[in-house]
């Protein structure tokens, strides 16, 4: 029942054609020709979504492997914050928000979840500056936060994420000359192949690090700390891209699997209607012939 109700909607979204009602009991049945055209297009879509699912599945395993090492790297790079007890000083400077999304769609609520978290953060911190990776989040966020966007990047992580790419991005962000107290990296954290969490990970500026309560325990020179800030920004951006990529591929796989399943159900329904109406036409023709013959 539920499937039937959702079918026409899916169909119209997928093909862009007006949904034809193919309820079995309806009188104004679609003609045979219409149904067969429809059937063909739906099976083509099913083929496409199925192959997209296959591609996404192979990419998930690869992306997951990259993500595992990136997570180890990111955790060990940011362990210093826990040891020094660095925290964000809300008043002292404006925060920078780095949204890590991508260019590709058809992967469920990945990108809108990022934009939602970002909007929520921006409403609490209206003075924040925005750096956006990927066209999807850019398209969604530039509608109401155009003024805050400082820099955007397209075609991030076209293949597998690399550290060099992340370092270049971090460099570009720093080149814009924005002074920030904390850079908040917003990305989708990979939980499992069916779940992700949108998280905000802070990268503290060296000023914030200098003010942290337990830094005095460490032997450190000022320029090293400044370099550390830049290095950590690159590392965390890389971590975010890697996790985001893995979550995106996993979500894409799930989305494509669902689409294939829906298309399959639709094909079944359409085939049934097609055969029924074919038979109905034959019966009608027979009746015509027989009544004609009897009248003679």
């Amino acid at each position: 029942m539920l499937a039937v109700r959702s079918l026409p909607r899916v169909a119209s979204a997928a093909t862009g054609q007006p949904a034809i009602s193919f309820g079995v009991q309806t009188r104004n049945m679609a003609t045979l020709k219409e149904i067969s055209v429809r059937l063909k297009s739906v099976s083509n879509i099913a083929k496409i979504t199925k192959s997209m699912k296959m591609i996404a599945s192979t990419k998930v395993t690869k992306a997951q492997r990259v993500m595992e090492t990136a997570r180890v790297y990111g955790n060990s790079a940011t362990a210093l914050y826990q040891h020094t007890g660095t925290s964000t000083n809300e008043e002292s400077g404006k925060p920078l928000v780095v949204v890590v999304s991508s260019d590709r769609g058809l992967c469920g609520g990945i990108h809108s979840s990022l934009s939602k978290t970002t909007r929520k953060y921006l409403s609490a911190h209206p003075e924040a500056a925005l750096a956006i990776l990927g066209q999807k989040a850019k398209a969604q966020l530039q509608r109401d936060s155009r003024q805050q966007i400082v820099v955007t990047f397209d075609s991030v992580a076209k293949n597998l994420p690399t550290w060099t790419e992340a370092a270049l991005i971090a460099d570009e962000i720093l080149k814009t000359g924005i002074e920030f107290e904390t850079a908040n990296i917003i990305y989708n954290k990979f939980k499992s192949v069916i779940a992700f969490d949108t998280v905000i990970v802070p990268v503290h500026s060296y000023k914030a690090l200098l003010e942290s309560p337990k830094l005095s325990a460490y032997e450190v020179e000022d320029p090293v700390l400044k370099n550390y800030e830049e290095f950590t920004l690159a590392n965390t951006v890389f971590w975010g891209i890697a996790e985001g990529n893995a979550s995106e591929m996993a979500a894409k796989r799930t989305a494509m699997e669902n689409a294939t399943k829906n298309a399959g159900e639709m094909i079944q329904k359409l085939t049934l209607t097609y055969n029924r109406s074919r038979q109905a036409t034959i019966t009608n023709e027979l009746i015509d012939i027989i009544t004609g013959a009897m009248a003679v």
């Binding site: 990259v66 090492t69 990136a70 180890v72 790297y73 690399t162 550290w163 992340a166 590392n235």
Partner: peptide
């Protein structure tokens, strides 16, 4: 000791 590279964790 934790020794990590972006693409490989050497020692954990």
């Amino acid at each position: 000791l934790n020794f990590a590279l972006p693409h490989e964790s050497i020692l954990k």
